[in-house]
Design a protein around this nucleic acid. Structure first.
Length: 691
DNA sequence: CTCTCCCTT
């Protein structure tokens, strides 16, 4: 079925080394303590020198002396994330006590890289090398010289010191992922670099966007290239070659095609595990069950071990894909995009790529987010294929033709261009960016998205009619690391006499999958029955409040969570988030009070924050949003799904999948909307709704 | 009758 003998795309085998750069770690809580060991450090030294980036050590240092910004292009595995900060340290960049800061887009990446580099330096984590992520600092302000952190932490540090005077070099890692925070931080750094000539920037990325990043950071407006302030350097990757195979004809059903391909590989190809990419949970489950059916008729000595992998899978199920494959078995992992960047599954030799990905896309007209299935970009396809070349040369099978590949867009559009920007705009304003429409974004978002964000912030009272942050409301709202609607509700929760309750609800809304969904038939039913114990007719937010109250009442016990099919790690995280927000409220002198079970107070306070997200039951029997007149439905996971449809609702989120769904609902009275948000509702509510 | 995925002093 595949066109044979297509030339491999990756032709740069790295040298064999015992160490893999690997940021995967599904459980951030099982960190190791590192102890100095001179023998280990000797072999580490050799390993460091065998990495491809080592050959560019002096060149990197030279270019950073000469240019303010270095765009460092290198494939995953070249060693840039661990080595470059050490080169800078060894070359004396931080000898005046300044810090080399490295940003990562994921928490586990920041912690595991810091641990690895501390080990290579033969020092304890938190001394010369440390990290900083939300709720978990491990660095010493006196001694730490290399600091790994998440992008959001750097943004917060910019709020405290807009010139980043503590740093000598900032390295932005994995910039090609182009998260919302990457783009905000890049836009701000461009400004900072003009004012701080001594500050250097390294932008580490995959190949596709190097030219654009170079242009973005080049402050030279003349034709004279000797005045450039930025420069590109490419570092060879150390992946093994991966043979790419394409189909000759488009496939009608990629799930089925993927299953057939997996079966063919299993039958004909030598030992080595397989990783197959699909777009969502439903597809993954379907492919897994089809593959298991085929496995029954398996004739070869090698037996297939078929495993699903996606984000909402319970932790214990996820961990199965990381176990080494027992002798006589071939692991076949069917995964969503989680396996493209977030996690690395060891031992993969064969990759199957369906050619599609599920992306979130914001529509400013309807104020809705959609989950849409779109063709992958070339960068994504190459990243997926590269997963086959981490331990030895591998093979990648693309379920689309080579012509289709060439027609794909080069890179996935940055999150900045497809997201709700209300929070981003609020934070930019807090950082002194008055005119966000003129802000120098690396990839400017559609103007409509910015206008939509400004409109929402104005309705909430966070900015005035001139677009300035209001004092004190807007300035304080910007300090909350949560969505603007939630920070508004928190800011007024003292007046409503229910700040304790609002804190718990909003903390729980920050964790996904509060209720676990076991796959086993019997347990799935038990889980549904357990959830019913918390359900109330006021809606999902009050149900979450019941969960949190019961969790605290039962001493935050893990066993209790297990009994009621609640996500223990999620609840623990919610408790941390709650504590952080509690401190903020106290700092703002907002009274911390409980309404003692008066649920109307809580619902009214929710209304005061979430009023822009109102929907009413139209006489047609279908809900409509007040803002945008968009038809939509109650999501099946809502506690209200099986109850009689309330006339008025507030939602936390709209998600367009098969249908347009509202999630996380609260039942409200229209009179509350008129009373608590008259500026928003005086005209609208007059219409003939089925009140 | 449903669920791409991260992250925040």
């Amino acid at each position: 079925m595949f066109s044979a003998d297509v030339k491999p795309r990756f032709l740069k085998p790295g040298e064999r080394s015992t160490w893999e750069e690997d940021k995967s770690d599904i459980d951030p809580n099982c960190a190791t303590a590192f102890v100095y060991n001179p023998h280990v450090s000797l072999s580490l030294e050799q390993q460091r020198e065998s990495l491809p980036v080592f050959r560019n050590r002096n060149h990197i240092l030279y270019l950073l002396e000469k240019f303010q910004t270095l765009v460092l292009v290198g494939e995953t595995g070249c060693g840039k994330s661990t080595q470059v900060p050490q080169y800078l340290l060894e070359a004396g960049w931080s000898s005046d006590g300044k810090v080399i800061g490295v940003t990562e887009s994921r928490r586990v990446a920041a912690t595991t890289l810091a641990a690895r580099v501390a080990e290579e330096k033969g020092s304890l984590l938190g001394q010369t090398v440390g990290y900083s992520i939300r709720f978990d600092d491990c660095f010493d302000p006196e001694h730490t010289r290399i600091k790994y952190m998440t992008e959001g932490i750097l943004l917060r540090e910019m709020m405290a010191d807009p010139l980043l005077r503590n740093y000598c070099v900032i390295m932005l890692d994995e910039v090609h992922e182009r998260t919302l925070y990457t783009d905000i931080v890049m836009g701000l750094l461009k400004k900072i670099l003009r004012k701080q000539r001594n500050l250097k920037l390294i932008v580490a990325s995959a190949t596709v966007d190097a030219e654009q990043l170079y242009n973005f950071f080049n402050h030279n407006s003349s034709q004279d290239m000797s005045k450039d302030t930025s420069v590109i350097l490419s570092v060879e990757g150390r992946l093994y070659p991966v043979d790419i195979h394409y189909v000759k004809e488009p496939v009608p059903d990629y799930v089925k095609a993927l299953v057939d391909t997996a079966a063919l590989i299993h039958e004909h190809e030598p030992l080595g595990d397989m990783l197959a990419f699909l777009t969502g949970q439903e597809e993954v489950d379907r492919a897994v069950s089809l593959l298991k059916e085929l496995a029954v008729n398996n004739k070869s000595n090698l037996k297939p071990l078929v495993l699903p992998m996606y984000g909402s899978l319970p932790n214990s199920e996820q961990l199965k894909v990381f176990r080494s494959t027992p002798r006589g078995l071939r692991k076949i992992v069917v995964a969503t995009n989680i396996a493209e960047t977030s996690i690395t599954i060891p031992g993969i030799v064969y990759v199957i790529d369906c050619g599609f990905v599920k992306l979130r896309w914001f529509n400013p007209e309807t104020h809705t987010d959609s989950l849409v299935v779109v063709p992958v970009s070339q960068a994504s396809a190459d990243q997926r294929a590269g997963r086959a070349g981490r331990i030895c040369s591998g093979k990648a099978y693309r379920l689309y033709s080579e012509a289709d590949f060439n027609a794909l867009s080069v890179a996935t559009p940055p999150e900045m261009q497809r997201s709700d920007l209300a929070m981003a705009v609020l934070q930019l304003k807090a950082l002194g960016i008055d005119n966000v429409l003129r802000f120098n974004f690396p990839s400017p978002p559609p103007a409509r998205n910015l206008h939509s964000a400004l409109g929402l912030l104005y309705a909430l009272g966070a900015i005035d009619s001139n677009g300035h942050l209001t004092e004190p409301l807007g300035i304080k709202m910007a300090e909350f690391p949560i969505s603007s609607l939630y920070s508004k509700a928190l800011m007024v929760s003292g007046e409503f006499g229910c700040s304790e309750e609002i804190l718990s609800i909003i903390a729980l809304l920050q964790v996904q999958n509060v209720f676990t969904k076991p796959s086993g038939g019997q347990n799935a039913i038990k889980a549904r029955i357990a959830k019913r114990k918390f359900e109330v007719q006021e809606g999902d937010l009050l149900t979450l409040l019941n969960v949190y109250t019961a969790y605290v009442k039962h001493d935050m016990s893990q066993d209790w969570c297990k009994k009621y099919f609640l996500n223990y790690k999620g609840l623990r995280r919610a408790q941390e988030i709650r504590t952080q927000m509690l401190h903020l409220l106290k700092r703002f002198n907002i009274p911390i009070i409980s309404c003692q079970g008066d649920s109307e107070k809580v619902c009214r306070c929710i209304t005061a924050g979430l009023f822009p997200n109102a929907a009413y039951l139209h006489y047609s029997g279908v809900y409509r949003t007040v803002r945008g007149d968009q038809e939509l439905y109650i999501h099946p996971t809502s506690v209200l799904y099986t109850l009689e449809q309330p006339k008025w609702l507030l939602f936390c989120e709209i998600l367009h999948t098969n249908q347009i769904y509202m999630k996380d609902l609260t039942v409200v009275k229209p009179s509350w909307l008129e009373e608590l948000a008259p500026h928003f509702y005086e005209k609208t509510i007059d219409r003939d709704y089925s009140l």
